[in-house]
Nucleic acid binder design. Structure first.
Length: 483
RNA sequence: GGUCUCGUGGCCGAGUGGCUAGGCAGCGGUCUGCAAAACCGUGUACAGCGGUUCGACUCCGCUCGAGACCUCCA
């Protein structure tokens, strides 16, 4: 896997095989989940599923950020969640819970597995305070007016602040602007460990220094350490978190625990929309619900959660991914083709005189692709090779022997639904009543066709089409599929 | 301005020092009552300019272009 620390691909060796500890930065629950949340969630879901598939026992920790953080506009230190709460006249925890529930629903729709532990920052203030105390005791932090800051220059004496992001402290210092309200810090590079709360601040906790709230990077360090230990295998998140968030995590954990916290850092790339960065200011930010319902003005239609998942997996996680109607529709059709083949596969029967089709190689290539830094697009390319074989087997131009048919079933079970997490949507095909009705309808249409009563057969087909049911006449009979 | 990433055929998107990625769209064909689906065939793609090399889309340099971060926040 590619390790951001070394900027190269490394062979992955777990610290305590078969156990693996993985921490991923989760959402701040003050608004609906958008595309920027879907990408890391799906990316690390893939990692989680694959490592588990290989037989590792993975403890996957993904946090919920629900404590004081600053709004990026001119709110002068007002807590994001507190601000929203005041506006909507709700308790902060009510807001947090509301958006947490909605986040979970969206993730379920995307078929993202729940992490092993999903700790809330607000539930770990004590751990964070303890860690800050340790940093103070060791002399790498200082208190000013009830706030505590991390001393980056002192840290940089013995360690390298910037190992992850490839930055040098000297460069950072010379490039930093002086901002108002930062006078408490000794250096502009220092970051807050604890912030004293302003009187208007609703979310606050008592601490040895002031009533306030933990600084931005504390929660990940404290909770990662609590559940995964001083040092763990994988830490993931978006590339935008690389600096300063992850850099600060490394610094504070290294001092507090005496060793670098993480062995492999993984960062997923960002999403663009029509080639442009997604952002509120650009008016192209899309929530997942916008996409699933098709209500966003930039969308020509709704795209299902599984389409979005498939689309994300069609690109490698370290590449930027561009959203456009054209690209999404391509993904939608590709997904339909893949799922239709999965369905067809169930009906195939083995034949004795089959020529070997090389299914074993396809399966092997899928493992090779996943082993090479989780290359899901390569897996998908291989799966479409399998799709071609399945469809050819269906119309009789190819045959599969029992052994290869079994391998094919294994391929789809393991890679399509198990590892990629691609499963059929809606109630198609798994309902006995619907199946029976459809069978009857198809038979009636077949009889009409035999009588050359095409008016009737076409009417049946058209009426079903208006219900989004597609009729497919093949050599071996007629099948149907929900579009 | 600094650090870093990237620039692949109509669109999305893999990959490699010489050998087919894949999906979608297009074109031709097979099948079909027709259509759809499926299958078969089909594209002088690798930003530009130099250099290294027997050979570069793949390595090096420069130019142009795009993006991320450099500040509080995720």
């Amino acid at each position: 896997m590619y390790n951001t620390l070394s900027r190269s691909k490394e062979h992955f060796k777990p610290l305590n095989s078969p156990h693996i500890g993985m921490y991923v930065c989760g959402p701040t629950v003050y608004g609906d989940a958008h595309l920027g949340h879907a990408r890391p969630a799906v990316t690390f879901d893939l990692v989680f599923r694959y490592l588990a598939h290989l037989g590792f026992k993975v403890r996957y920790v993904r946090n919920i950020t629900d404590v004081g953080h600053l709004e990026n506009d001119a709110d002068e230190g007002e807590d994001k969640i507190a601000r929203k709460a005041r506006l909507e006249k709700l308790e902060p925890m009510e807001v947090v819970h509301h958006y947490t529930v909605r986040y979970h629903r969206n993730m379920d729709q995307l078929n993202v597995l729940r992490p092993s532990i999903e700790p809330h920052a607000s539930g770990h203030v004590i751990e964070q305070i303890e860690m800050i105390s340790t940093l103070l005791r060791k002399g790498y932090a200082y208190e000013v007016n009830g706030s505590v800051y991390f001393d980056v220059e002192r840290y940089n004496g013995k360690h390298h602040y910037g190992v992850l992001s490839g930055r040098k402290v000297e460069d950072l210092v010379s490039n930093t602007r002086e901002l108002a309200g930062q006078s408490e810090k000794r250096s502009s590079l220092d970051f807050a460990l604890w912030k004293k709360a302003e009187p208007s601040h609703i979310m606050r906790w008592p601490s040895p220094w002031s009533d306030g709230f933990p600084g931005w990077h504390m929660e990940c360090s404290a909770m990662g350490c609590k559940y995964l230990g001083d040092q763990f295998d994988i830490h993931g998140g978006g590339m935008d978190l690389l600096f300063p968030h992850h850099e600060a995590e490394i610094a504070q954990s290294t001092i507090a625990n005496g060793k670098a916290p993480v062995r492999y850092w993984m960062h997923n790339n960002m999403i663009t929309i029509n080639g442009q960065k997604m952002g509120k200011s650009l008016g192209n930010a899309m929530s997942l619900d916008d996409i699933f319902t098709g209500t966003h003005p930039l969308l020509e239609k709704a795209y299902s959660p599984m389409t979005i998942r498939f689309f994300i997996l069609m690109a490698h996680y370290r590449s930027t991914l561009d959203f456009s109607n054209e690209a999404l529709q391509a993904a939608e059709k590709g997904l339909r083709k893949l799922l239709a083949a999965a369905d067809t596969l169930k009906q195939l029967t083995p034949s004795e005189d089959a020529v070997i089709q090389g299914i074993e190689n396809i399966l092997q290539d899928c493992y090779t692709a996943m082993d090479d830094d989780f290359n899901s697009p390569m897996v998908i390319a291989n799966l479409f090779e399998a799709v071609r074989i399945i469809n050819s087997a269906k119309d009789g131009s190819l045959r599969l022997n029992a052994q290869e048919l079994k391998l094919m079933q294994q391929l789809f079970e393991d890679f399509v639904s198990g590892i990629l997490g691609i499963i059929p949507e809606g109630a198609a095909g798994d309902d006995k009543l619907v199946d029976g009705l459809m069978q009857t309808i198809i038979e009636l249409r077949q009889e009409a066709r035999q009588r050359k009563d095409y008016a009737t057969s076409d009417k049946i087909r058209d009426n079903l089409a208006s219900l989004n049911i597609e009729i497919k006449d093949g050599r071996e009979g007629t099948s149907w599929q929900v579009k």
